[in-house]
Design a protein around this nucleic acid. Structure first.
Lengths: 258, 258
DNA sequence: ATGTCTTTGTGAACACGTGCACAAAGATGG
DNA sequence: CCATCTTTGTGCACGTGTTCACAAAGACAT
């Protein structure tokens, strides 16, 4: 989910709808698996099942790329793998830097799926001087001071932010100033970036909260009619005693006017 | 992005649109920050800026929850924090298990944002017997054999899968069979689950691929007109020599008929 | 060749999400 | 109590995404 102010004003990027772009990697993964099993062709129905979408959607998605199928037969696996890879820009090398080598940053550095598809971890950067030189996933961590040098020296255009929330915006600004134009943000903050820079966000806590919402809904459906186990809640007085009191996280305000 | 066959057939869950639900955690985070600074009220304009959305959208989102604002003034921060928390089900405790304590699983276990909002890591589970008993983030890892016992014993309804792709579906099946109805999947696979189970997916590699697509597009715009640095690509013969050859990842098929 | 059968590619209808723009609600000052 | 000013809540129009359903393309057998 792109969050930064910038992510194409919903305009289809060169004719391919954003929703389709987001599914291409899914298709690619399914196709790669087929390719490894030396399956020569696949129908939209089969491939859709493997990718977890419905077949009409898949066909429409592919239609944006061109007419790559053969009626009565299906799609040529190898050919499609190549076309999608090319469309996604995976036929070229993408050097990536990871900033913030804590628990998460280190896990990302070790993540295999990174290297597999044209993404090469060019450098690991951390603000802690005592980390400098220490190898993580076989790559020595460098200090934040080197950030600009690393970016321009390696022609890095994609940066991954895995710092604490407080440092994220500052790191982001430096990355962008140094020439990075795509950012994958793991810090729980909204980043603001200039036009032309893409930001995508991965936020564990948000995902869990969305699940909790649905989970609660499911539970509520079973016990329908019950007015919820939760207290009726307080409506703060219009401008009255808007009493800034708050219990220690999770507690509820205790006013109850209007 | 929910992927499992199941994620409400696009039906608004009890009147609140899915897109709105996905933004509530964002608002909540911004509101919590304001609350900590003891700001009593906030306008839709200010809050929208803090959450990185536009104000009309925010007002419409809130309108699904009810009329919680005061015209001419704005929203009461404390009250709104409570209402959104309640709506998301964060006023109750959600025990969570993490399955697969590798690099990523361990990072997740250590992630602070977990505990902060009602999510409690009830157990860590791994298939490796040599991990059993070893504490990660202060919690002893338990063996997969205990999975069912742990789920039912703790009333766990949310599971996090951080195993290798190959094990994910199997783990998923066991979680579901044991009573889990919401799954956050970090493994790069499409999980299939029965109706009534929600799956959300977090996939690093997919995020990067989407960024690469846009990155490539940007680069292409600068050098407009250029027929792309990539070879024109091969169209496989209809049923002819569909020659299963493939270069070592990144190489391109070499046929060129039709 | 011709007919049958499979599967693609897409027009058209529909559902969903977004953003504008403004009326109505309420605060605030005189 | 009235006028003014601010800010919410929402009707409406528009764009995007999804799904259906079917004509046309091609494979394959006879």
């Amino acid at each position: 989910m792109a969050t930064g102010r910038t992510h194409r004003p919903a305009t289809r990027s060169r004719g391919i709808p954003e929703a389709t772009v987001a599914r291409l990697p899914l298709y690619l993964r399914a196709l790669t698996a087929l390719s490894e099993r030396s399956v020569p062709t696949v129908s939209s129905e089969e491939l859709a099942a493997a990718a977890g979408v419905n077949s009409a959607k898949l066909r429409k998605d592919f239609s944006y790329l061109g007419s790559y199928g053969t009626r009565g037969v299906g799609y040529d696996v190898e050919y499609l793998v190549y076309q999608i890879s090319r469309e996604l820009g995976l036929t070229q090398d993408w050097p990536v830097v990871i900033v913030g080598i804590g628990n998460l940053g280190a896990a990302l550095a070790n993540y295999g799926g990174f290297a597999s598809r044209g993404f090469r971890v060019a450098a690991l950067i951390d603000a802690d001087p005592s980390m400098a030189g220490k190898p993580v996933a076989g790559i020595p961590v460098q200090h934040t001071d080197e950030l600009e040098k690393i970016i321009s020296g390696n022609g890095v255009s994609i940066g991954v932010i895995a710092t604490p929330a407080g440092a994220a915006q500052q790191v982001c600004d430096r990355l962008v100033a140094a020439g990075v134009t795509s950012i994958l943000n793991f810090a729980p903050t909204v980043l603001s970036v200039p036009d032309g820079v893409d930001v995508r966000k991965v936020d564990l806590s948000i995902e869990l909260q969305i699940l909790a919402f649905h989970e609660q809904r499911k539970a509520g459906e079973e016990a329908e009619g019950e007015p919820a186990a939760v207290p009726p809640a307080a409506r703060p007085g219009a401008s009255a005693a808007a009493d800034g009191r708050k219990g220690p996280d999770g507690d509820v305000p205790a006013v109850m006017p209007a």
